Amino acid sequence: MTQLAVADRRTAGRATRTTIAFAACGAIVVLAIVASLALGVRDVDPLTALRAVLDPSIGTIDAIAVRERIPRTVLGLLVGAALGLAGSLMQGVTRNPLADPGILGVNGGAALAVVIGIAFLGIVSPWQYLSLALVGAALAAAFVYVVGSIGRGGPTPIKLALAGAATSAALASLVSAILLPRTDVLTIFRQWQIGGIGGAEWDRMLVIAPVIGIAVVVGLLSAPALDAMALGEQAAKGLGVDVGPWRLTAAVAGVVLCGAGTALAGPIGFIGLVVPHVLRLLVGANHRALLPASLLGGAGLLLLADVVGRLIQDTAEVEAGIVAAFVGAPVLIVIARRSRMQGL
């Protein structure tokens, strides 16, 4: 078999896997939407849920229950897509499969800034939440990058991961130190701190959704540059890619997506780690396919985590952030073990 034939077969194989990945992600998103609308304290069959969404004049108890779940479903899709794409962008920028908004401290920075605003500034409006979350996420990302750049070799993947993990732990301690003495603030925002989509509000989503939309477009446009940078900086420059501005653009898009998602639903971790890593096994390192697939996969995974959290207990809900952590922690262990073995 000639080399050309082998290359054609590999290309066809990658195209098939990419098609399968997108089909699977689309099916998961559809399944998650149906489950989110139909399942809960009062279960509704899918056809009834569909009729309730399409015909607002239906006033049955089942229809009312379904329509009350619509904001929560939309919020899950919005935040999950933002976190999935943010994780994929950060992994592409740092060239590190361990990169994730939670592990790199970005989620923690956004959460700390919002908690400071709640406890000391009395913030209430969506714009205030968004502004503080973006500032906190950006400062945390910059701090982790600076710390990870210290020493020989500059900002290596391992150093960034270690700096991010240490920063995340420190930020979480600061959040607890601020909240614990203030029972009024702790009571109001306990669920937000855990991370969940149960408190969906249209006014907040309408303010923050355009910001997420712009960051999504910018992130997707950076895909060709990320593909070039994956070959190495010298190779990327040889292909005519201005590495510095594009790396900054993709990083800013990831930070904005993470900060906006945290402002809406709290610091939900592991979505940005699990989704890109799993999809990379199917579509490869091609960011033109990986980024939009991560967008879909993140939306589906967070929404399914929320549904599981509703059903896992009879008397109370388990927040989506906790369910996502149960899913993501084993994946993190597998990635760390594989990276260590490769390093050896």
Score class of each variant (00 low, 15 high):
residue 123 I to F: 08
residue 125 S to W: 13
residue 127 W to F: 15
residue 128 Q to A: 11
residue 131 S to M: 15
residue 132 L to M: 14
residue 132 L to P: 09
residue 134 L to I: 14
residue 135 V to P: 05
residue 137 A to I: 10
residue 137 A to L: 08
residue 141 A to N: 05
residue 143 F to L: 15
residue 147 V to T: 00
residue 149 S to D: 05
residue 149 S to C: 05
residue 150 I to Y: 01
residue 150 I to A: 01
residue 151 G to Q: 06
residue 152 R to I: 02
residue 152 R to Q: 07
residue 156 T to K: 06
residue 159 K to Y: 04
residue 162 L to V: 10
residue 165 A to S: 12
residue 167 T to S: 08
residue 169 A to P: 08
residue 169 A to L: 10
residue 171 L to R: 07
residue 171 L to C: 00
residue 173 S to Q: 11
residue 175 V to F: 03
residue 177 A to I: 12
residue 180 L to W: 13
residue 183 T to R: 14
residue 183 T to Q: 15
residue 184 D to P: 04
residue 190 R to Q: 13
residue 191 Q to F: 15
residue 191 Q to W: 15
residue 194 I to C: 07
residue 197 I to R: 06
residue 197 I to E: 02
residue 198 G to L: 14
residue 200 A to S: 05
residue 206 L to K: 12
residue 207 V to Y: 11
residue 207 V to T: 15
residue 208 I to F: 07
residue 209 A to Q: 11
residue 209 A to E: 06
residue 211 V to F: 11
residue 211 V to D: 04
residue 214 I to D: 00
residue 219 G to R: 10
residue 220 L to V: 09
residue 225 A to E: 00
residue 226 L to T: 05
residue 226 L to P: 07
residue 227 D to Y: 04
residue 227 D to A: 05
residue 229 M to A: 03
residue 230 A to D: 12
residue 231 L to I: 01
residue 232 G to N: 05
residue 233 E to P: 08
residue 234 Q to F: 05
residue 237 K to L: 13
residue 239 L to S: 01
residue 241 V to F: 02
residue 243 V to Q: 00
residue 243 V to K: 02
residue 246 W to T: 04
residue 248 L to R: 15
residue 249 T to F: 11
residue 250 A to N: 00
residue 254 G to V: 08
residue 255 V to R: 07
residue 256 V to K: 02
residue 259 G to Y: 11
residue 260 A to I: 02
residue 260 A to T: 08
residue 261 G to W: 05
residue 263 A to E: 02
residue 264 L to A: 05
residue 265 A to G: 04
